[in-house]
């Protein structure tokens, strides 16, 4: 595949001119390997250093680390970048070995550990030099190999726990011209990517474990038609309905259609009055999803929750799912 290359000075100049006109709020700095991992990483660090030191650039810099580069270069990158990322690329080490034999899962994880330790150190000690204050993230390609959503989420959950990542980016595989024969010719649906992000949110903000989100799904795949929280609730109907006037926060967060902010507003509102069904209409945008799962001062869903057609009732009409418009 043919690739283009910018010099360090070109990237610096373009960034400054674009930033000055408010086209961009920062720089996502990434490169394919040129000559060697260290040479490439050196160029990336030089861009960040020139911007920060020579031009007092205050914009955001996200620098995609070359995992095989020497740790001194990674350390220097942390001085100038707001966020560092090291792409894990594939959900399993076996897939990485198969699709990107030049990359090594253990060196990726070593770099993540190294970066994580420096971030923690800089946060713990205010006198320590600045190191990637916006944390580290990673990217995972979905749909290039045969890994199921269960495998992807288990990997994600492990990465969050082990390296305290800020974000995992799930990227639906899309074919490129003259690609490797091993890669599929069809793009992964963007909808799959979207459902994985929703499930990822459940892990990070709603107190779900990956096992809970995936238990009972077909073939270890998230339901494409409805969001993972609604799907979980439909599979765990014995936990509902939930009384919004008495339930604890962690229980409220399990109600489909009720987000973190709405749940907190609900908690502060119910200190002053008993909540009624009409009050819930004003809390979020997903009243329809919430309704079969809640009890309020004036409402009980009754047998609605037991209806076998509930899923169909709540699933959006099919045309809304067409993300390709």
């Amino acid at each position: 595949m043919r690739r283009a290359r910018f010099t360090v000075q070109e990237v610096v100049d373009l960034t400054l001119e674009f930033y000055k006109r408010n086209y961009i709020e920062g720089l996502f700095l990434s490169s394919g390997i040129i000559r060697s991992p260290d040479y490439t990483m050196e160029c990336l660090v030089r861009v960040a250093r020139t911007l920060r030191v020579d031009h007092a650039f205050h914009g955001y810099i996200h620098l995609k680390t070359i995992p095989e580069a020497s740790s001194d270069l990674v350390r220097e990158a942390g001085l100038y970048a707001d966020r560092l990322s090291i792409n894990i690329e594939m959900p399993t080490p076996e897939s990485l070995q198969k699709f990107a034999p030049e990359k090594r899962a253990d060196s990726i994880r070593d770099t993540m550990r190294y970066v994580g330790a420096h971030i923690a150190e800089a946060q713990a000690d205010r006198r320590a030099s600045r190191f990637a204050p916006a944390g580290q993230s990673t990217q995972l390609i979905v749909g290039a190999d045969a890994s199921s959503d269960s495998v992807v989420l288990a990997t994600a959950s492990d990465l969050y726990d082990t390296y305290s990542l800020k974000r995992i980016y799930y990227s639906a595989f899309s074919p490129v011209p003259q690609a490797s024969n091993l890669l599929p010719a069809q793009p992964a649906p963007l909808l799959r990517e979207n459902r994985l992000y929703q499930a990822d949110w459940l892990l990070r903000y709603y107190g779900f474990t990956a096992t809970e989100v995936m238990a009972g799904t077909a073939n270890g795949m998230l339901d494409p038609d409805i969001d993972p929280k609604l799907a979980w609730a439909l599979r765990n109907r014995d936990r509902f309905p939930i009384d919004v006037n008495t339930a604890d926060r962690d229980v409220l967060l399990r109600i489909p259609g009720l987000g973190v902010r709405s749940a907190d507003r609900l908690l502060s509102a119910r200190r002053h009055c008993r909540l009624r069904l009409d009050d819930l209409r004003r809390l979020g945008n997903s009243f329809r999803k919430m309704r079969p799962f809640v009890v309020t001062a004036d409402y009980h869903p009754g047998p609605l929750l037991d209806r076998s057609g509930l899923r169909r009732l709540l699933a959006p009409p099919a045309q809304q799912l067409d993300l390709f418009g």
């Binding site: 507003r265 609900l266 502060s268 509102a269 002053h272 004003r282 809390l283």
Partner: peptide
Amino acid sequence: RTLMDQAVDP
């Protein structure tokens, strides 16, 4: 006095 906390008030 606590009206600001009542996000559900119209």
